[in-house]
Nucleic acid binder design. Structure first.
Length: 188
DNA sequence: CTTGGGATGGTCT
DNA sequence: GACCATCCCAAGG
């Protein structure tokens, strides 16, 4: 298993969203490691996607979506949560990112339980704000390079992707015809 | 099982 | 001043 190269993210955002399923998200805090298999993603593009933060124009919040692919785009929402995205788009497009909506916990499960204040393993990181809580991802990780071995990065996974389900994205009002939410099931 | 409302504050109009 | 790429728990059926 190795770090995903920058070129992985320099492809169409929807393609990258599907290909991130089954990959491994790794968080290092001090000498501790937390990791999980990515099980749910959503693609957010640019001018063809009214549901995207990047749809209107570049702002202080969304500027990461316009910058280097393979870096993180973290935003604060609903007054108390962070959501974690990976910047990805093909070279001919100006902006795009993949929202990581769920992981299947692998390592550091006890730390995740502590970070979340919950004991039930099944609901530790099965939502965009749950996984940022479990992994302690905050605005200080904005723009972080995920192709480098640091405190947060993404590696290829040992898991083969099986059936990928495509549905409308969650919690949006625009562009509900686009089936850009992708999920896999990970066997226990 | 499903539904509804409260928490809580940054961002954009 | 409204909206929000959410979560949790309580109440209802």
């Amino acid at each position: 298993m190795s770090l995903l190269p920058r070129s992985f993210y320099a492809r169409d955002t929807v393609t990258v969203a599907k290909d991130l399923l089954g990959k491994k998200l790794v968080r290092k805090i001090g000498n501790r490691t937390i990791s999980g298999i990515i099980t749910e993603t959503e693609a957010y593009r640019h001018k063809d996607d009214p549901a995207s933060h990047a749809f209107r124009r570049k702002t202080d919040r969304n500027r990461a979506m316009f910058e280097e692919v393979g870096r993180s785009y973290v935003y604060f929402t609903y007054g108390m949560y962070f959501c974690f995205n990976v910047v990805a788009r093909k070279p001919s497009v100006e902006a795009g990112a993949v929202l990581i909506r769920g992981i299947h916990p692998e390592k550091g499960i006890e730390i995740m339980k502590k970070n979340r204040g919950k004991d039930n393993e099944k609901i530790l990181a099965n939502g965009p704000a749950k996984l940022t809580q479990a992994l302690k991802i905050t605005r200080k990780h904005y723009g972080l390079d995920l192709t480098k071995n640091s405190e947060l990065f993404i590696k290829s996974g040992p898991y083969r992707r099986k059936k990928i389900t495509s549905t409308p994205r969650v919690g949006i009002r625009e562009a509900t015809d686009k089936l850009w939410n992708f999920k896999i099931k990970v066997e226990q």
